[in-house]
């Protein structure tokens, strides 16, 4: 494929303004290929450890060491180590199939749900190993919330969607038994619903129809509802897996604003396909490239202006995608 670079170069130059279209085209070509072959236009180079050695002052919220993931025989993630600082936005970028979503799902052990996945390595939350056999998954996922690529509200009312988590964790008791014993938390629930929806910038749009089915909301509203639902459990870390990829530009910008706001109280890790988005909202950026390798991890400005790796530079300038 390398011999094609010369031919495509001119194309890329003329298409600078329509960056996204090239992006998606090339994305489509790479999607067809199996992960073992090199992506179109990617040059060979050796990864150096210092590219991923990102230092920061505050203590690490999450620290990942030598994480490896296999799906059956497919080695999806290779020896990834990185530390994520507290109360900041960390963006994970890279072409399709580079393992960034896999990596994200390892951080709250959602990969446990895929039976073929085998995970090796260590992930620590505040210094506590989450891959310990005695880990309390309920507690872990309470502390590390997650928002998915496409909005997935439950087929329940908006109110019930928000209070779902706290109710499952016994924070809010409603129903016959609770009322019988005088432990009815309806007021607390109302407070929580309002606070979460306000945080997710959705309160003004839905406060008059909290009992409507959540599936009746628009895509952008649904995604913000999912964020509100996640906030209601009061997590410390929020993982977002391309939260805006299925949304229109206006909804996307709302979500981006929201992410920036959230970084004041929470640690946000966000996977995105859209480099402008990463550049806009994140404090630091990690670049994954084909084969499930973490190639470079540093301040966002550094990554986008002066990357160390030639491959990262090629990727960011849109030579391949």
């Amino acid at each position: 494929m390398n011999n094609q670079i010369g031919d495509t170069d001119t194309d890329t130059d003329t298409n600078v303004s329509t960056d996204t279209s090239t992006d998606s085209q090339l994305g489509a070509t790479t999607g067809v290929e199996t992960s073992t072959t090199t992506t179109a236009g990617e040059s060979e180079e050796q990864i150096r450890d210092e590219w991923t050695d990102y230092r920061f002052d505050s203590p690490a919220k999450l620290s990942v060491e030598d994480l490896n993931v296999w799906y059956g025989d497919d080695h999806a993630l290779k020896d990834v180590s990185m530390e994520i600082p507290e109360e900041s936005v960390t963006a994970l970028i890279g072409p399709s199939g580079c393992g960034k979503s896999t990596y994200l799902r390892c951080l709250n052990r959602m990969n446990d749900r895929i039976k073929a996945a085998r995970i090796d390595g260590s992930v620590e939350l505040d210094g506590m190993e989450i891959y310990d056999p005695n880990t309390n998954l309920v507690e872990l996922r309470k502390r590390i919330g997650m928002v998915f690529q496409s909005p997935n509200p439950f087929p329940k009312s908006i109110r019930d969607n928000i209070s779902y988590g706290p109710r499952k964790h016994g924070e809010i008791n409603k129903g016959l038994l609770a009322r019988l014993f005088g432990r009815d938390d309806s007021e607390k629930e109302a407070e929580l619903v309002e606070r979460s929806l306000r945080q997710a910038a959705l309160w003004d749009e839905v406060n008059d129809r909290l009992d409507d089915n959540a599936l009746g909301l628009s895509g952008g509203q649904q995604q913000r509802l999912c964020i509100a639902r996640c906030l209601a459990v009061d997590p410390e870390v929020i993982l977002m897996d391309e939260p805006a990829s299925a949304l229109d530009p206006i909804a996307t910008s709302k979500i981006e604003d929201l992410v920036t706001d959230l970084a004041e109280d929470y640690t946000v890790v966000i996977v995105t396909h859209n480099m402008q988005q990463a550049a806009r909202i994140s404090d630091q950026t990690a670049v994954f490239l084909t084969g499930g390798e973490l190639v470079e991890y540093d301040d966002t400005d550094k990554i986008f202006e002066n990357p160390e790796s030639q491959r990262v530079e090629d990727y960011i300038t849109g030579k391949f995608g």
């Binding site: 939350l125 706290p166 607390k188």
Partner: peptide, 16 residues
């Protein structure tokens, strides 16, 4: 915010 959490759970439970 965290008044609702009457009992603070440990992430990794002890072995008994």
């Amino acid at each position: 915010m965290s008044e609702g959490y009457a009992h603070e759970n440990e992430l990794v439970s002890a072995e008994s």
